[in-house]
Structure formats: structure tokens, C-alpha cells
Write a protein that binds this DNA or RNA. Sequence first.
DNA 1: AACATTATGTGCGATAATAGAGACAGAGGA
DNA 2: TCCTCTGTCTCTATTATCGCACATAATGTT
Lengths: 231, 231
Amino acid sequence: MKEKESGTLQTLDRGLSTIELVAQSSEGLTVAAIAKALGVHRAIAYRIVSTLETHAMVTRSPDGRVLLGIGIPAIAGQFMPQFRVLAEAPLRKLASDAAATAFIAVAEGDDCVAMQVEEPPGHLIRVGYRVGSRHALSQGAAGLAILAARPPQRDDPESVRQARADGYSLTQGQLQRGAVGVAVALGRTDNRAGSPEFSIGVVAMEDLDIERAIRCVKETVRCLDGLMRRA
Amino acid sequence: MKEKESGTLQTLDRGLSTIELVAQSSEGLTVAAIAKALGVHRAIAYRIVSTLETHAMVTRSPDGRVLLGIGIPAIAGQFMPQFRVLAEAPLRKLASDAAATAFIAVAEGDDCVAMQVEEPPGHLIRVGYRVGSRHALSQGAAGLAILAARPPQRDDPESVRQARADGYSLTQGQLQRGAVGVAVALGRTDNRAGSPEFSIGVVAMEDLDIERAIRCVKETVRCLDGLMRRA
DNA sequence: AACATTATGTGCGATAATAGAGACAGAGGA
DNA sequence: TCCTCTGTCTCTATTATCGCACATAATGTT
């Protein structure tokens, strides 16, 4: 049946599974449905839901269905700052290795926002990329990488198709004259709706060693994916 | 000690507390610190963290500290759609009671975005408010209500101070000529960084019964707060 | 309307999972 | 070197969990 991993707690495991189940349902689940999905007795599901409720991880709609609670976004709001901490070292390494300004960008609506930037040491002239700056997803390597990571659309522009085929996006002068950008999307393929879409990459002047940069960026993606995965 | 609520699961409770602890820490916690905070043996904390890890609720940084994992935002992405479901009925009631277009708006950066709109039944002429439309937080009742709910700032404009003092925001013609808007912020005072900021309100033509609208909006806020709370 | 049927929520013992403690090996740090 | 901290393992008493059964509410059917 279930290969129960050693050293894990059954009750907590079920509780977390419940949160995931509720999250995946679009309109909430009844307690009975949760019990069935978990393969446990209804009474157990009630206790699980009660406990989740006291932590505001779920709420119950007036008709009894279980929905995600306000505690979820409250916790999620802290994810980004912590992700920064985790990403700082690899990003700094990337900047150093590729000798270029390294960044992590995140999709926000139809925009692409620079979330974190590390500049390479020892270069007096460097390409700036301000944290918080936004531009259209369809412009610049960072946004293209994110678009390319999404499932193919009928009306994808050539630049997105290209990036998808290559496994990286490469733009020259799209956001700034004389700047070259390389980026790769970060994150899993199981892109359930709503999970944030990141890309990671570098920008530099035209003297960027592109081959090397691509290698470095991909390496960093592997590294960060590994840090997040560890499942 | 702790008033242990009956019908809740200790193990799950501790696991959720652990998530909250980790979320509140800015740079992650060691397992030992978690154990101490929970008042349990280290071995227990390890088991809890292991279980959370298998669900990607937390990750471990290379130096061993526990950070929020990628599973958190993945789940959080589903919060908004579910919140809509929950809010639909009260919002519809608000539109009907106040005889005006009711909305829920959410802060996104410095913008205010209309998240959900319900129009009153039986009115041929009504003020439209498109879902997804954005404007500055500082403009319009919806945004002002959110700003007023934040801790007071030195440079708050008069409109924000006014709204904070009144307990609601009221604007006339700010976003559209001849339109009147009333809004109240939704949500708790314990506004831990990162939790989304909502406001709820109505817009109508100048013939709006403002007193009545304020009452209806506040009533709806109480209703929704109750739906989310249930802690 | 009265009934049948299904769903929801809550006590109560038997059982099995967890708590808790101690011990141990390895990795750094002082 | 010693000391501290981490991560893992084993073991048993405890107690929290499980599943059953009952009470209640909501629904649908004749």
C-alpha cells in the first residue's frame, strides 16, 4: 500500500494532505469527501479539520464545505523573503562565475518584476537592474523564460517558441541598448495554478560570454531547484 | 499550561505551529530552536520537520535552518479563487441591500485591483467596475480603505487620515465623474507582513444612500470576517 | 405530510501511534 | 584536545488516535 516513510508522523502527514486536497478543490470539500480521499474514518477527518481550523488554515463555508483559510496567505507572505535568503548565495555565485549581473525575476500578472539582483564583484562598469523594476513578460530574457516555461499557447510569439526550444531565453538590447540577457525558468513542471513563476538569469554588456553564461545560469537553476526540492 | 482544546490533534497542531514559527522567523530556524519553542524533545521536532519536508511545506537551507518550502505558495495560489466562492453570496447580498455595485478589492504593490464585483439586481443604469481594473491605492474608496487600515504613517494624506478616523472611506468622483464610493478594509488587525489586504465596498451614482451604504458595507465586513475567523 | 434516506457532528473504550528520554556517531568550533 | 551542536536510532509507557455507534439535522421520495 503506502510506503510509509520512516521518521514521519502519520497524523501530521494526513493533515498536510488535507490542506493539499482542499487547495486542489475549486469549491471546497465536505468533511466526508476528505475522509474518503484520505481513506480514513469520518471522525478522523473531523478532528483533522478542527485542528486545521484552529490554525486558520481552513475555514468552513456556511454550507459546511472546507475551504482554505486566511492563515494560508498570511504564511505565504513570508515565503518570498525567506526564498531570498536561500537564493542569495547561489545568485552571488552566479554573478561571480558569469561575470555579469545576476537576477531572479517573478511573474506578476502580465508583468515581470525583478525580485533580487546581485552584481558581480570587481567590475566597475556593470549593467544595472533595479529590484522592483517591472516590464512586460514578453520583453526581456527574464519574462520570456517564464513564458517559455508555461504550456505552449497557440499565439506564442517566435521569441517564446525559440526560448522554449532552446531551454533558455536570450535577448539583446530589448530592455536596454547594448545589454544582453540570458534567463531560464526556475521551478517544477507540475505548475499547479497559482504557484509563483520565477526565472533566473544574467544581464551584461555585449561582451558577455554567452555560452558560459548559459551554463552558469543552468547550473544555478539546478542548484536552487535542489534546494527547494529535497522532498 | 495549554488549554488543550478537545477534538484537536496534538501532532497536527504542533506541525502547524511549526509552520507558523518558521514563517515568523526571518532567516529560518534550526530544528533545536523549533524544539525549544514547542517545548518538546528534539527528536520530536525532527520528526515534525521531516514530515513537513515531504510535503514541501518547509525546506532546509544548506546550513541546516528550516525555511518555508515551495509547497506554501503553491497552496496559497488557490486561496483567492476559494475566497471568491466564499465571498460571492455576501457580496451579492450587499449589492442588493445597498442597491449599488458591490466589490472586493485587493492591494497589489501600490495599486488597488478590483477582485470581485457584483451588480445590484433590477437597475438598468449602474456604475460599472471591471474585475481586474487597477488604480493607485491612494485613489478611490477601495484603495483608501486599505491604506487607512495600515498603521498610521507620517505622510498619510488627509483622505487617509479621514478614512481611518471614520472607519470607512468615502470618495466622490475620484475615479469616475459622478460616481460615489464607500469602502471598508477587511481583515484582522494582526496584519503580519505579507497577508493580503482587502477592502470591500460599493460604488454608485450620486443618488447613493450613503448612510445606508455604510451600514450595509460594515455589516458585510462583519459577515466575511466571521466566515474567515471561526478560529 | 409522513416517511425513508442521506449527511453531519459527537461521546466512548481498545489499540496503535506518538512522546519522550537516553545514547551515539559525526561535524565543526574553540 | 575538548566541547557543542546536529542528526539518527532504539525502547517503553503513555496517551492520543481510531473506528464504532448513537443523536441530530437535512434532504428527497411516495
